[in-house]
């Protein structure tokens, strides 16, 4: 009798029921083993793909570096004067090349963080300094896009304890998105405040807000997933890898913090993240 017909015949005595449950159990074990194998195969393939991503990004970087250096040699007239038109063309090569390099760096960081936990070099530093540094770096972009950038970080904010480079990366990413998705004349702001009402101890809550296009509530989780971009017009405007927010979340979580967004379509976005900080009495 096949397993199926046995199962279909209605059991009337206890022995038959026992046999059936034994059968079902062994079937279940087999299915679990099968599912485990599939999961493990998929994990292997996923890590192979991540490795591939990392290798290809490394290999793209070397020729691109050489292209940019050659273009700069031409731009700077080191091999002889070039015409203004030629200069314009060469500057475009450099801008495009640097954009590609930033994307490659993002892919490398993503691939690295996927294969092993990223190392955290924790120090104690002033969040205000990080904001000042980033503001200075973005000054010309803000002016060019006719945006207003407002920073409000209280003087008495306790120092952050964490990896300065990584936290700077998170802030750069959120600000980069805000600049990209806010139309000229709009406003972008960075704020920070101390939150002492957390069970695990005080944290610094950072906010990056903008008056841009906003994000529909349906997409608030999606945007933190790898390779996700809410719509193709956004990706066209932003030239992104779709990894920026995934990396930002990873870096925040690496510090024991949380990152989230509050937004509605057409009403701008407010991104928040928390960071561990020194105790106030210290």
């Amino acid at each position: 009798m096949s397993a199926d017909s046995r199962r279909r015949s209605a059991p009337s005595d206890g022995e038959l029921v026992d046999l059936r449950s034994q059968y079902d159990l062994s079937q279940l074990h087999a299915e679990i083993a099968e599912a485990r194998k599939i999961i493990s195969d998929l994990r292997d393939r996923d890590s192979l793909k991540t490795q591939f991503l990392s290798n290809i990004a490394h290999d793209l970087r070397t020729p691109l570096t050489a292209i940019i250096t050659h273009a700069e040699i031409l731009r700077d007239g080191l091999l002889g004067e070039i015409s203004p038109k030629q200069g314009e063309s060469v500057r475009t090569i450099i801008t495009g090349g640097r954009q590609l390099l930033d994307m490659i760096a993002e892919i490398l960081l993503y691939a690295k963080g996927s294969s092993e936990p990223l190392a955290v070099t924790a120090t104690r530093f002033s969040f205000r300094d990080v904001v000042d540094q980033i503001t200075a770096l973005n000054e010309s972009l803000v002016a060019k896009k006719h945006l207003e950038l407002e920073c409000s970080v209280p003087d008495d904010l306790p120092p952050v304890i964490g990896d300065r480079d990584k936290i700077m990366h998170v802030l750069m990413n959120l600000l980069g998105n805000a600049f990209a998705f806010t139309p000229p004349g709009g406003k972008v702001w960075v704020g920070a405040m101390l939150d002492t009402h957390r069970p695990a101890g005080p944290v610094i809550q950072v906010e990056v807000g903008d008056t841009g296009r906003g994000i529909a509530p349906d997409h608030h989780e999606l945007i933190f997933r790898e390779f996700a971009q809410v719509d193709s017009s956004a990706s066209r405007a932003h030239h992104g890898t779709g990894l920026g927010l995934t990396i930002a979340r990873r870096l925040v979580e690496l510090h024991g913090g949380r990152i989230w967004v509050e937004s509605e379509l057409g009403r701008g976005s407010r991104f928040f993240f928390t960071l561990p900080c020194a105790r106030i009495e210290e």
């Binding site: 070397t62 020729p63 570096t65 050489a66 250096t69 050659h70 700069e72 040699i73 080191l78 091999l79």
Partner: peptide, 9 residues
């Protein structure tokens, strides 16, 4: 590729 660019520079 990179060293030749640096050499020219």
């Amino acid at each position: 590729l990179i060293s030749s660019a640096l050499q020219i520079l």
